[in-house]
Simulated scan of single mutants.
Amino acid sequence: MIHICQSKYEQETSEQEYEFLKQKIAYYNLPSQSFECSTISHHPLIDSIQNLTVQEALKKQFKEVTIQSRITLFNMYLKSAEDQREEYKKKHESNVKKMDASQHTLNKNEKLSSTLVQLINERCNKISERIRSIYKFKSESILLKS
């Protein structure tokens, strides 16, 4: 039971974290969060260059590198979160399969009662509900910013 509940917690948390990350990335891709609106776009060192041609070329290059780095970083975050989500999903499914398999192989005195199996499932559902509620609140706070 402990392993199943723990793996359900990890599975649901990683699932919600993945969805939350996608929302945060969407937020950071809004026009209000563009490079031009950020504080990094106005660097005093670049602004201090007297030659406007050089200054504009550096600003353009700085913008391109920054945007590309941001895209690369977001993709790495998503890939990592997706990998973790899949790992925890498989772990939880494995734990549930072990429990189900043990129900068929154990003798009558060692098997879990149907009531206990039902309680484990209800506990897992409550874990999922709680985590979804937490991430719903987090998502709403992101939406309020935008």
Rank of each mutant, 00 (worst) to 15 (best):
I2D: 08
H3L: 07
I4S: 07
Q6S: 04
Q6G: 00
T13K: 12
S14T: 15
E15R: 09
E15T: 11
E17G: 14
E17T: 15
Y18N: 01
Y18Q: 02
L21C: 13
K22A: 07
I25V: 02
A26R: 08
L30F: 02
P31C: 10
P31E: 14
S32Q: 14
Q33C: 13
C37R: 15
S38N: 05
T39V: 13
I40M: 12
I40F: 11
H42F: 03
L45M: 11
S48P: 05
S48E: 05
V54E: 05
A57N: 14
A57D: 15
K59V: 04
F62R: 12
F62V: 05
F62E: 08
K63G: 06
E64D: 14
T66P: 03
I67Y: 10
Q68Y: 09
S69M: 13
R70N: 01
T72S: 10
F74G: 01
M76K: 10
M76L: 07
M76V: 04
M76T: 11
L78H: 04
L78Y: 02
L78W: 04
Q84D: 03
Y88F: 13
Y88G: 00
K89M: 02
K91W: 01
V96R: 03
M99K: 02
S102E: 14
S102Y: 12
S102I: 08
S102D: 14
Q103H: 12
L106H: 10
L106I: 01
L112C: 01
S114C: 08
T115M: 09
V117W: 01
L119Q: 13
N121I: 06
E122F: 08
R123M: 10
R123Q: 13
C124G: 05
N125G: 04
K126E: 11
I127M: 04
S128N: 11
S128M: 12
R130V: 09
R130W: 02
I131G: 06
S133M: 09
F137A: 11
K138C: 00
K138G: 04
S141Q: 13
L144Y: 14
L144K: 15
K145R: 05
K145G: 01
